[in-house]
């Protein structure tokens, strides 16, 4: 033989095609009778507290969410760190300042199509304002809807990502 294929010496009873074929068919038939594992997605969903096989990991990085303070205003102070660190350059921030000298974002937009969901914005944010979220249902009818403005980011309610902690590799 031209190529050196390693050939196992098998006992003859293991080389019967008919028996192997019947065994295989018995196996597939057994699987037909077993319970189905499919989750019926839109009706059944994985929940945040669920620790079953379908649960989404708490460090999942999905579409963003801006946290708000007690008055319902966004926590963002428009420091400009998140557009600075963003590798995809998807955050548009125009800072403004009110009469008391507090900085706030005049415009804060995230283009979720450009976003690579690295989570750096959450890591870098000094006010813990912008977060990536444990969320994956993002379907829209138009592309424009994927540029999330400040109002939309603030009104999101999904759980925020816990991110990956290098000190706690397994997340325990």
């Amino acid at each position: 033989m031209a190529i050196g294929v390693k050939v196992m010496k098998r006992p003859e009873r293991e080389m019967s095609y008919v028996r192997a074929a019947l065994k295989g068919m018995a196996l597939t038939f057994k699987h037909m009778l077993q319970p189905k594992v499919t989750m019926q997605y839109p009706e059944e969903r994985s929940t945040a507290d669920e620790r079953g096989s379908y649960a989404v990991a708490p460090r999942w990085r999905g579409t963003h969410r801006m946290l708000a303070d007690e008055q319902g205003r966004s926590k963002c102070v428009a420091c400009g760190l998140c557009p600075q660190i963003c590798p995809a350059n998807c955050i548009k921030l125009v800072p403004g300042e009110d009469e008391e000298g507090n900085r706030y974002p005049l415009i804060y937009e995230i283009d979720e199509f450009r976003c690579v969901f690295c989570g750096y914005c959450q890591e870098v944010c000094p006010e813990e304002a912008i977060h990536v979220g444990v969320h994956f249902e993002n379907a829209e009818y138009s592309r424009d809807r994927f540029v999330y403005d400040l109002e939309r980011l603030t009104s999101q309610t999904h759980q925020v990502s816990s991110l990956w902690d290098p000190a706690d590799v397994r997340g325990q």
Binding site: T28, F29, H31, M32, Q34, P35, K36, V37
Partner: peptide, 10 residues
């Protein structure tokens, strides 16, 4: 359907 059942799907 049969293929799904044999693969534990619906």
């Amino acid at each position: 359907k049969v293929s799904a059942w044999m693969q534990n799907r619906r």
